[in-house]
Design a protein around this nucleic acid. Structure first.
Lengths: 251, 251
DNA sequence: CGCGTGATTGAGGGGATTCAAATGTTGTGG
DNA sequence: CCACAACATTTGAATCCCCTCAATCACGCG
């Protein structure tokens, strides 16, 4: 049970300076003064319930959003209704970068659990970036990182088998949880089998079967959405061959 | 036979102001004075022969490159040698954006025919962007456009069948040729069947078979690398259903 | 408690791959 | 300029991986 109504809105005013995600998110590399100026641009956070859309494809683009807490998917859909999940997003990650190009959001962003985001009005961000070179630079890097990530997804979709895709998916989740200080070998999936499948270019039955296969081999333990990586080395080994030969170092 | 040695290097000094690709490339939206300042940053163009690499994954990142003439592929490879073509690039298109994130190139860029590129030293670009807001903005838009493109490729790789992928590929090529003033229904493929397959997540045999199928149906005429779109409407119809429901408007 | 949604598992089918051979093309050196 | 080698493409046949269709099961929620 959430109790957001009890908290006065002022309390939701966020500041990068105090944020635990400082080292993951946009403010990385800024000094105190610069961060204070960034604080002034960031709107108070917005709360979303599970299933709620943060923005939808085709809507006017005004802001980027950083995940504070919770979990999101972004997806695009075709005219005949096929859906492609383009990413899953956890705390500290930016959404909406694809909206800059045409000033219109290019995907749907949907909360997969009750979540909270920081809103970054893009035009103000842009102006600030003109005055703070390291912000401009970091922002270029964030966009570039998204491009690198997308290219790795292309490799996954274009060259990898079902088992490799799923192993890569689990290892990737695990690593991102580690960075955020969560247990990396014991977690709850926020998305359905169908959403995993949509991201990985597989059908939900194939996802389910492959998870079962991993479990039979003793590599993982599956209890519905609760996943434990029992032998993560085995998964890593499965992914080793098909992983990018020149992985992008982080920072 | 190329005769680049006959041309003095000075003659290769390029300028955005006079460039026919002005409206497609980086300078879009700049005024005369701003464009002159951009000219000062852009290094003289570099010529590459067919098969030559412009840069390679892992090399230090210093510059972006804009295609002046010719045709490129960019690709990443996995540790066990699988290759994923991440894109094909023609005149006016930028390469190297994925290198910004880690200051290291994230892919190989290889000329598929004798080509010429403009070099854009990134740090100087960055400084200029601080002084010319519209340049900064346009650059964000270019990076965002790359992200949108990548998401559409994910849709292609994740949801489309072989025929749909190839039709989408041909229509996309055709449209990009149109914008550049080339014949849009009669062109020479610069890449091999294998490279097309690598981009589309298919094997070269499947590409070949599918082209033959299109030809049998009278939709295209295939003579090795020479392709004619006889009934492009048929191809478009095949792609219509699986196309992005909210296509990004250009500019 | 019963319903609906999501997940699992099985059987069968199909689209793309793999293996293979033949043909055509391009580039090189004599 | 031709001959030859190396490479690219086409096409066929057989296989396999994943998908489709379907039934069952488990859980959560009113």
């Amino acid at each position: 049970m959430t109790d957001s109504t009890v908290v006065p809105l002022q309390a939701l005013k966020v500041s990068c300076s105090n944020c635990t995600l400082r080292e993951l998110c946009l403010p990385l590399g800024l000094n105190r003064e610069e961060m204070t100026r960034l604080d002034a641009v960031i709107r108070q956070s917005r709360r979303l319930k599970r299933g709620e859309a943060l923005f939808r494809s085709g809507e006017g683009f005004k802001s980027l959003y950083a995940v504070r807490t919770g979990f999101f998917k972004t997806c695009i859909s075709s005219q005949d209704g096929r859906e492609q999940v383009t990413g899953f997003h956890m705390s500290g990650e930016l959404m909406g970068l694809d909206g800059i190009s045409a000033n219109v959001h290019g995907c749907n962003a949907v909360a997969l659990e009750d979540s909270e985001v920081c809103e970054l009005p893009f035009s103000r961000m842009q102006n600030l970036a003109l005055e703070i070179p390291s912000l401009q630079h970091h922002f270029y890097r964030l966009m570039s990182r998204e491009i690198v990530r997308d290219h790795n997804v292309m490799m996954l979709l274009g060259n990898m088998k079902a088992e490799e895709r799923l192993a890569a998916f689990l290892i990737n989740l695990s690593q991102r949880l580690t960075v955020r200080g969560f247990a990396s070998n014991d977690f709850i999936l926020r998305m359905s089998r169908e959403e995993i499948g949509s991201f990985l270019g597989l059908k939900l039955e194939t996802v389910s079967r492959t998870l079962s296969k991993f479990q039979q081999q003793g590599w993982i333990a599956v209890d519905h959405k609760h996943i434990q990586l029992v032998q993560p080395e085995q998964l890593k080994q499965l992914v080793a061959g098909c992983a990018n030969a020149h992985p992008t170092p982080n920072h």
